[in-house]
């Protein structure tokens, strides 16, 4: 019994220590402003591997989710004779919730796990240590560009997701199911507010992008440098990012849309 309590206490301390390391790590990575001539090409390369390479999965998922929303929305709304409201439903769902959340989950699975594995492997093969011994801080050289790339890529991906989703929804409801196109867009435009819906959605994605990338690079940097350690760190990245995104989504939704 005492052993159990002691183990619980140790676990608590470990968690707090990990959070502390993660904070220290973030500070170290974001502290120095790099020389633009050095930092910019590094950032571009990371934006490419984190953002551009995730684009395909985001576009395909967005298209299908939009189409499903169109189908489901039409079926339910046509019972009340208000199938014209399907545009409003698709747009609000995507812009406020599904765009940020699904993109973040896809991002954690596609880009986050890749980041963790890459950095973990760099640690295991002593590339990070050797960089340090060459007088180059790996936090600034390796980690910082990846963090920034994640912050920047995630909102872009989410916005593209929403647009593709709305287009997919239009495809299904207007072109296939025959909802009047004017009503589709008109209802959407009268109910979606740029500041309250679109910008709040973008704020969400910025937060999610920050959290997902932070978790991913930290798990890679903090992993046990063996093959088992890297695989467990990759799993942790996906699990922790997904949980953090869903939990934060509730908090952010309550703050942004909760009062009406």
């Amino acid at each position: 019994m005492m052993d159990r309590i002691a183990a619980l206490g140790r676990l608590g301390f470990n968690v707090v220590a990990t959070v502390g390391r993660a904070g220290y790590f973030l500070g170290g990575a974001l502290a120095g402003v790099p020389k633009p001539a050095v930092g910019f090409p590094l950032l571009v390369r990371q934006l490419y591997s984190v953002g551009v390479l995730s684009l395909a999965i985001v576009v395909v998922s967005g298209l299908f989710i939009g189409m499903v929303l169109g189908l489901q929305g039409y079926t339910i709304l046509s019972d009340y004779g208000s199938e014209a409201a399907v545009g409003q439903m698709i747009a609000l769902t995507l812009v406020r919730e599904l765009g940020p959340v699904v993109t973040a989950l896809l991002f954690a699975g596609r880009a986050g796990s890749a980041l963790t594995a890459e950095i973990g492997l760099m640690k295991a093969t002593e590339q990070l240590s050797s960089m340090e011994m060459m007088g180059v801080d790996p936090l600034r050289r390796v980690i910082a560009p990846r963090l920034w790339a994640g912050f920047i890529a995630m909102p872009i991906l989410a916005v593209i997701f929403s647009v593709v989703g709305i287009w997919g929804g239009m495809l299904v409801s207007v072109d296939w199911l025959g909802v009047f196109e004017g009503a589709f867009w008109g209802n959407m435009q009268s109910s979606v507010s740029f500041v309250d819906d679109v910008l709040n959605g973008v704020v969400k994605t910025v937060v999610f992008g920050f959290v997902c990338t932070w978790i991913a690079v930290f798990q890679g940097y903090d992993c046990v440098p063996t093959s088992a350690g890297i695989s467990s760190a990759t799993t942790k990245t996906v699990v922790y990012s997904s949980l953090a995104v869903l939990g934060l989504d509730f908090v952010l939704t309550a703050v942004m849309f909760g009062d009406f």
């Binding site: 760099m122 093969t125 002593e126 240590s129 050797s130 011994m133 060459m134 007088g135 801080d137």
Partner: peptide, 28 residues
Amino acid sequence: YTLREKMGMLFQSGALFTDLSAFENVAF
């Protein structure tokens, strides 16, 4: 970091940057 510029270290695994060619590794 300034002092480390005077040090070289050869790691057991070599620790070459896997995304750079041999030339770029030495140039790094």
